[in-house]
């Protein structure tokens, strides 16, 4: 039995806009173990993004508990959350979210800057992960000189560089042409084969197929 990375219990999230309450998640319980590749599927408004944000320690639940590699996330301060995100989670966003006018390698180094790694180690690790995603020859290009698929590969390299416990990918192929989307999925597949734990949000069936386990969300609840 492999150890649990994420353990979500009876999680609820309610958004308040004036007097109107919107229940984004209600009573969701999920466990994700080391080495898993999980796809969370659902239509828009199903609460999958909210779940992703809470799992990524970007947002806090209204009720319920969330354990991330043993840390009780809902009790942490903003700065402690920042440190958790820095060390334990690697984010891959739909819109890549790379810093403009900043070379690929400097984008990859950014999380290590926040962790306070020395320059030579940053250089070495950044090169290593960029090589891993097949961008060894594009390290000094800035995002606007790269294709969508290449930009997403830089983002994956950035997610990997801190050796996180889990990679959270939010619609990673949403902004990419389908041929390149396959390349991205191949990378995720390979990373999972190497032992990385991956949680991916998507609404596309053929993308979700790559995962070993699929969780369906519907109206803020898990559909079994």
């Amino acid at each position: 039995m492999s150890k649990p990375i994420i353990s979500v219990n009876h999680l609820s999230k309610v958004y308040k806009t004036g007097d109107i309450e919107v229940k984004a998640l209600s009573d969701v319980s999920i466990q994700i173990n080391e080495g898993e590749f999980v796809a969370i599927m659902g239509s828009s408004g199903s609460g999958k993004s909210t779940l992703m944000h809470i799992m990524g320690a970007l947002d806090k639940p209204t009720s319920g508990s969330y354990l991330l590699v043993g840390h009780n996330v809902e009790s942490l301060s903003d700065d402690e959350l920042a440190e958790i995100r820095n060390k334990k989670i690697g984010f891959v966003f739909q819109a890549f979210n790379l810093l403009a006018r900043t070379s690929a390698i400097d984008n990859v180094k950014l999380p290590m800057d926040y962790a306070g790694y020395p320059d030579n180690e940053q250089e070495q690790r950044a090169k290593q992960v960029l090589q891993m995603v097949g961008l060894a020859d594009r390290m000094d290009h800035s995002p606007n000189e790269l294709s969508g698929g290449q930009q997403q590969r830089v983002a994956i390299a950035r997610a990997l560089v801190m050796k996180p416990a889990i990679i959270l990918a939010d619609e990673p192929t949403g902004n990419i042409a389908s041929v390149q989307a396959e390349e991205i999925m191949d990378i995720f597949q390979k990373l999972n084969d190497d032992g990385h734990t991956i949680v991916m949000i998507t609404h596309e069936e053929d993308i979700a197929e790559h995962a070993k386990r699929i969780i369906h969300l519907f109206d803020g609840k898990i559909k079994i």
């Binding site: 990524g56 970007l58 903003d78 700065d79 920042a82 440190e83 995100r85 820095n86 060390k87 984010f91 979210n97 810093l99 950014l110 999380p111 926040y114 962790a115 950035r158 801190m162």
Partner: peptide, 16 residues
């Protein structure tokens, strides 16, 4: 704003 959000997501603390 988006850049700041990204930086925070990647682990930037308030001080930084």
């Amino acid at each position: 704003t988006r850049e700041i959000g990204l930086r925070k997501a990647l682990g930037a603390k308030k001080k930084t």
